[in-house]
Structure formats: C-alpha cells, structure tokens
Design a protein around this nucleic acid. Structure first.
Length: 742
DNA sequence: CGGCTAGTCATTTTT
DNA sequence: TGACTAGCCG
C-alpha cells in the first residue's frame, strides 16, 4: 500500500531504513511525500515506537506539515514522535538537562534583536562607539563561532579574532548571568552537554533509533554535529536535501554537510530523486539550464513527464510602476479566464519592492497577502509586554527589566537605571534582585537616592510583579497573568491615553496578542507561561488566529513574498519581479564574487521552480532606488535561460513614454504585448482615479477598520462612504479625513 | 522626559 | 527617497 504513488528511487528511500542514507532531492520531486512514507513505514511495518524516532527540520512550517501528514497516514498515537525543528528539539532537551551547564530550567531565549541589545550594551560598557566598531560585525563573529559549534572551553580549531573575541566572552558571560541562551546557544549548549557529559549523550543515542533530517542543505556545522552524535550508535540516519536550493549560507548553512556526509558515514547510501512532479517541462528545463551554470554542485538531472506548458514571457517594463501595472493587468486577465487568486504568487528579491505592487493591487482591488513580512512579535508594544512576562518567569533577565522599568513612564530614567546597573554589577545580582530588595531595605543602598515618585512607582512595580510571580507559581493561566500585567503596569492606560492611530493600532495588536495566548491555551492541557514564551520565540506563527475569513474575496489572495520566503511552496502562476542586475542578483552578492553569484542563482532557481503552470519573469529598464533612477539591465539569469523557452515582450501602458525595447539583442525574439483590452482601459481610468476605490479597506483613526462602499467626486471633492466594523456607515472627504489604506 | 532635527544607510531572515 | 537612530534642547 505504501508503494503506490511512489517511484523506484522514492521506494528505495522508504525501504532502506537501516544505515545512513543521503537523499538528494530536486525541487518538486515528492520529497515530503517520501519522507512521510518512510516514517509511516518505520511505524507500521517495522513497528518502531514513535518515541524512538527523531525527525528534524529547519522550519516550523515543514515540521507541522510533516507531522500532519504522518498523523493522517497512521492510526497510532504519535504524540511521542519528535518531529520538530532543531531549535525546539534542543530547547526541549535543555529544559530537562540544562542543570549540567549551570543554568536553570526557566532560562530565557534571546532573539536576534535582544542579542543586538546585549552587544550594544557591551560596546557602551567598554566606551567604544558603534561607529568605530559595528555591533553587526561583533554579532556576525559570535554567530559564526556558534554556527560552527564553538563554545567556551571546547576543543577544536576555530579562527579566533583577537579584537572581537573579548566581546564573545563578555557576551556569553552576560547571557549566562541573565539565565539566557540565544538561538545559536541552544545548539552549542547541546553539543557542549553531549561532549562534557557522555552519559547524557548515551541516553539520547540509545533512545533515538532512527534520525531523519529534512532541508539538509540548510543545516550548519553545529546541527551536523548534533545529528552525528545522536546517530553514532544506531547509524540509522537519513538526510534529505538539495544543494541547488541552499540559499541560507549567509546564515551559516554549510555545503560541507552534504559534501562530507559520505566521509563521515562511509557506508552511506546516496539516492537521487530527479523526477519532478510539479512543473511544466518548459519550466523545468529552463530552471535546469540556469542552475547548471553553478560549478559548486554535485549535480542532478531533473526531468519531468509533465506537458510542455506555456512559454516563459520575459516582460520588459519601463520602470517599477509599469512593472506593477503589468502584474496587476495580467492577474486581472488570469482572473477573467478563471484563475483564482490563491493560485498566483509574486516573488521579489527584497521587501522594499512590495510597496508599489501593493499600491497597484489595492487600486485594482486585487486581494493579496504578504507572506512573512512584518513580524508581529517584533512590534514594540508586543516586545514590551513580553518583557514583563519574561521577567515573571526569569528573575535574572535584566534586559527585560531594563526594557520595562520605565515603560510606561514611571520616573525611572537613564540615570537611575545606571545606578541600579552599577549596584547589580557590584553585588553580582540581577536588576530585579537589586530592585526588589531595595524597595524594602533602602538603608542598604547608600549610593542610590530615589525621589519619592521614583521610589513609590518602583514599590508598585515590584509588588505587582511579586503577585504575578506567585500566581504563575500557582498555575494561573498565562492569559490571566497577561491581563493583570497589562492593566496593573499602567501600560494599557498609557496607550489608551493618546488616541492617535499609532496607539490605536498598538492596542489592536495587543488584542491580537491576547488572542494568541488564548489560542495557545486551547492547544494545551496545562498551559504555562514558560511554555508560551518558548513557543513565541521558536515558533512565532503557531498561535496566529486565522484572519483569512474569505469574506472579501472568495478566490483567496495573491501571495506576495521574497524569493527566500517562497522555498517549499508552489503555485500555478508565478511572477518573478525585478529580475535585474544589482537587484536579483543583489549588488551585495555581486560584491562577494562568484560565491555570491552562485547563491543568488540558487535563489533564482528556487523562485523559478515554484511555478507549476506558468512562469513570468519581469524586469524594469529603470528603477527608482535610494532616490535615484538606476538602469541596471536584465538579470544575468535571464540570459542563462535558453531562448527557445522564452518570449521577450515589451509592456506598454498609458503613461509609458518609451515604446521600444532598449535591448535590441532580443529584438528577433521580441514581441509587443497588446494590452488594448479592458484591463488596460481600467488601468488608464484608475490612474487618474480615486485614492480609495470602492472595496478597498481603510483605517480611520477614530472609527478603526472599515471598507469603502461608494466613491463620488474627484480630487479635492472626492468623498467616500465607509462601512466600519461595527456596521456604522459614514461619509468622508478623503482629503481631510484621517484615513489610511489598510 | 519627550520631542525634534540632523545624519546615516540602505539584501535575504527558516530559528 | 524614506526609515531609523543618536544626540541635543526645552
């Protein structure tokens, strides 16, 4: 039953369950299906307990998808099956074993921005201006060491930078004092634990009889080290990856993990999955031709049985606006022929490119969704409230303390904070420990004089936090702790006091945060604050309440995302926008030389191979970049596509001055696109038209979110009728009303 | 403490 | 060009 729907190579992966296996799986080769079958086979045919299997992926998305699919296939209870990300696996392991390393199990996880704060603090403490030594340089150094498995006291050869290393040491000390680990630290701590305490390693080695790793091309050295150690005993390790889709080397992903696999596991079997089930023949052959230009690859020959499909249009536009016009008009055309929004995606190289496209989509009432754009948990108000919550769990988190001590304003300014910090350093205690003692025993702190206002607000803060800590210890639900903190800290009042749209949207975000906590609580038997915080750090999108109610548009939304965000996804129709030199490939990568060009080529390849039916590649002759019009020319990757697979087209629209291709080389293969049908007429009308067309969503600073029902008048007299969330209808003059598009 | 201005610097971001 | 930050002043 398992073998149905699997080809020969895939079956090999499923059944060769013993001994090390490396699967090189091309884009769209049914990789996930194969992995799921392998796990199913282990569970059902070989009767392996789910408890003995460890499946690691890089992203939560991939882990969730795999887990769901296995759950569908298998009748067993797979609750004990560990199918998760490297980081979550390590965090979970450390929650029970961290005692060996001198931290407590309530350790906090610092994200990148918190790491940055620590580094900035260290620079300041040494009296070095960030202009003389960039915090990014230090962070890069720290990450680089951690990605390669370096920890304080480890053995092995690492390139130590004399100037930067002291910062690494300071940084580690700070985190240790704060009972915190950063993302990289979760991984190195596990390596350290295994190396220094072989008995712990032995236990886990015995436990996990089978280890599987997905997205292997994205693993870094520490991760390799972890899976190597874990599988040394049973040697049943199966890694699946595609070197052509390695697009995170700047994040530490190390191609050596693929190249060295066979030398670390000499008995390893290597299986290639080369048949593509996703894309049309033209797309596969075009993408293969591009990726073959890379020299640093083992090499695979992708092929497909799918039909030829449409030729790839290369669209030359005058500028970024014209590019957006083209996409909008083409999507309207597709829609007319029955294509649904949800089957269409647009990829760009950098987030900044999305703005103009979004404007155009709004103008044409094309429903869209930005995938992986603004990060909810990175918003200021969310970070503030999270800092309160973190402090409840972890006394030692002085970073959290200094973040909230004066938010909302309590009369505890920089000077007071500095005194508290000095005191904390002198006594070797955390800020919380100092302050909670200070409010009771002021006489012991001769150096710290407080005004009565400062004193009383600190007393209030401390007593509130004390109460919440007790409640947390008694098992009170996280949502109730949050409520208490939000109101008793004065944060809610502080935001409600100013009624500008900034604070209104902040309050809305806090409401959403409230939903997220409640969502989390519904998913657990015994929800704890500590667990909630960990989920937020390691799997921020898991508690998202679905906002996609489909009310506004039944055909879903067009997906907009960066090429990086596109990995692992597929769409019938794909647009790659901004296919220009210095954009895609980015100028930064070009500075790195061939290495950079190859990584960008892999990224371009990933973008191309997302398309199932039709791929469009678009570039602009000129583009406004940093306030200047740049003429970059078409991306080199376009030139690497054999001409028989594409048709060069020049897009013209109303406001376009230049009508000829400025790339005469392509003239013979070029053709003008006539958009003289309704879609272009619509564009012309919209160009001079309304700021807020009917159907667009808006936010009014007083009334909140609403939808435009009718428009009338033009220019200064443009009036719109809006229906707000609560059903109230109101008319506004668009030039005066405090309305922004939503 | 908060609001303003001048100066700076511009990828990608699974965790 | 525009978003963010550091530093200055009221």
């Amino acid at each position: 039953m398992l073998t149905t729907n699997l080809n020969k190579a895939q079956r090999e992966v499923v059944y060769d369950s013993d001994g090390p296996v490396m699967v090189l799986a091309g884009a769209g080769s049914g990789k996930t299906r194969t992995l799921v079958s392998r796990v199913t086979y282990l569970l059902e045919e070989k009767n392996i307990s789910p408890f003995r299997i460890l499946a690691l992926t890089f992203s939560n998305k991939a882990a969730r998808e795999m887990k769901e699919r296995v759950a569908c296939e298998v009748d067993l209870d797979i609750g004990t099956l560990q199918m998760t990300t490297f980081h979550s696996f390590c965090a979970r392991l450390l929650r029970s074993e961290i005692g060996y390393l001198g931290l407590s199990r309530s350790f906090t996880i610092y994200d990148d921005s918190e790491s940055k704060t620590v580094v900035k603090f260290l620079l300041k403490r040494r009296g070095i201006s960030p202009k003389d030594l960039s915090p990014y340089e230090i962070l890069y150094y720290i990450n680089d060491l951690k990605n390669n498995g370096f920890y304080h006291g480890c053995t092995g050869e690492f390139p130590i930078d004399e100037d930067l290393h002291p910062f690494f040491m300071d940084y580690e000390t700070e985190l240790h004092k704060a009972n915190a680990l950063d993302f990289g630290g979760l991984l190195t701590a596990v390596v350290q634990l295994f190396q220094c305490h072989p008995e712990v390693l032995d236990m886990y080695q015995k436990k996990f009889k089978y280890v599987l790793v997905d997205e292997y091309q994205d693993t870094n050295r520490v991760q390799f080290e972890i899976i190597k150690m874990l599988s040394e005993k049973h040697r049943n390790i199966c890694v699946v990856g595609d070197e052509d889709q390695s697009i995170y080397s700047w994040r530490g992903a190390d191609i050596r993990n693929i190249l060295d696999f066979e030398s670390v596991f000499p008995e390893a079997k290597v299986i290639k999955l080369e048949q593509n089930y996703r894309s049309s023949k033209i797309i596969i052959e075009a993408a293969s031709a591009v990726i073959e230009k890379n020299l640093m690859r083992k090499g695979k020959a992708m092929w497909t049985d799918n039909p030829d499909g449409d030729i790839i249009p290369i669209i030359e536009c005058a500028d970024e606006k014209s590019e957006a016009e083209f996409v909008a008009s083409e999507i309207l055309k597709l829609k007319k022929s029955g294509v649904e929004n949800r089957d269409v995606a647009l990829f760009y190289r950098m987030n900044a490119q999305s703005r103009i496209i979004e404007d155009m989509f709004r103008k044409h009432n094309i429903a869209y969704r930005i995938v992986g754009g603004i990060k909810f948990y990175e918003r200021k108000e969310i970070k503030d409230i999270l800092a309160y919550l973190r402090l409840i769990v972890n006394d030692k988190d002085s970073l959290a303390f200094s973040r909230i001590v004066n938010v909302p304003t309590r009369g505890v300014g920089a000077t007071t904070l500095r005194k508290l910090e000095n005191e904390a350093v002198a006594k070797g205690l955390s800020l919380w420990e100092i302050v909670s003692d200070l409010v009771d025993n002021q006489e012991n702190y001769a150096n710290i004089r407080l005004t009565s206002r400062t004193k009383s607000s600190l007393v209030q803060l401390v007593s509130m936090m004390m109460e919440v800590k007790v409640m947390d210890g008694e098992g009170v639900r996280p949502s109730q702790l949050y409520e208490k903190v939000l109101h008793e800290s004065g944060y809610y009042e502080f935001l409600s006091a100013s009624r500008n749209h900034e604070s209104i949207s902040r309050l809305e975000n806090l409401d959403e945060f409230d939903n997220a906590i409640k969502q989390f609580e519904m998913n657990r038997d015994k929800p704890t604050l500590l667990e909630f915080l960990e989920t937020i750090n390691l799997d921020p999108s898991s508690n998202e309440s679905s906002t996609d109610d489909g009310k506004f548009n039944t055909s879903g939304e067009v997906s907009l995302m960066t090429a990086h965000g596109a990995k692992g996804l597929e769409y019938d129709y794909v647009f790659i926008a901004g296919a220009e030199e210095n954009i895609f490939p980015s100028y930064r990568s070009l500075e790195e030389g061939e290495i950079g060009v190859e990584e960008e080529r892999r990224l371009f390849y990933v973008a191309m191979t997302r398309a199932m039916k039709k791929l469009y590649i678009i570039f602009a002759q000129g583009r406004l970049l940093h306030g200047q019009i740049k003429f970059n020319g078409p991306s080199r990757y376009i030139n690497e596509i054999p001409p028989k697979f594409f048709k060069w087209k020049k897009f013209k629209y109303g406001g376009d001055r230049r009508n000829e291709s400025v790339f005469p080389d392509y003239e013979e293969n070029s053709q003008e696109v006539d958009y003289g049908d309704e879609s272009i007429i619509q564009i012309k009308r919209e160009k001079s038209g309304y700021k807020f067309p009917a159907g667009s969503r808006i936010i009014h600073s007083l009334y909140g979110e609403g939808i435009v029902l009718e428009t009338e008048g033009a220019g200064k007299n443009e009036k719109i009728l809006i229906r707000f969330k609560d059903g109230i209808r109101k008319k506004f003059l668009t030039c005066i009303a405090p309305i922004v598009p939503f």
